[in-house]
């Protein structure tokens, strides 16, 4: 299954406004995307389009997360999401 790792760049971590923006983009993808902290078992990965899942994940700035998706368009979807994660959204 295609997967990517990404380092959370937003100062406030993956909650508040960055989480809302990320969940929105994940929901727009043609494939289901999951998110987990690096080192977490794959079956504990959560729905990346759920703002509540992202908040319970509790990823802070500098934490590394793993994104996974399968099917047509998975690679493009993952690339787009990684790019967003690695942008400091609080600075915008």
């Amino acid at each position: 299954m295609p997967e990517r790792t990404a380092t959370v760049a937003s100062r406030s971590g993956l909650h508040a406004r960055p989480a809302a923006l990320f969940a929105e983009l994940a929901g727009e993808q043609p494939v289901d995307v999951t998110i987990a902290m690096q080192g977490q078992p794959e079956d504990e990965a959560m729905d990346a389009a759920s703002i509540l899942s992202l908040m319970t994940l509790g990823a802070a700035k500098g934490d590394v997360v793993v994104l996974r998706a399968e099917g047509d368009g998975a690679d493009a979807a993952l690339d787009a999401l990684v790019k967003l994660l690695e942008t400091d959204l609080d600075a915008e």
Binding site: I51, L52, S53
Partner: peptide, 17 residues
């Protein structure tokens, strides 16, 4: 801002699943 975030939660997949 609070209402927007709360609106997102109402149809959150984690909650509904």
């Amino acid at each position: 801002a609070v209402l927007e975030a709360t609106a997102l939660m109402a149809k959150d997949t984690m909650l509904l699943k």
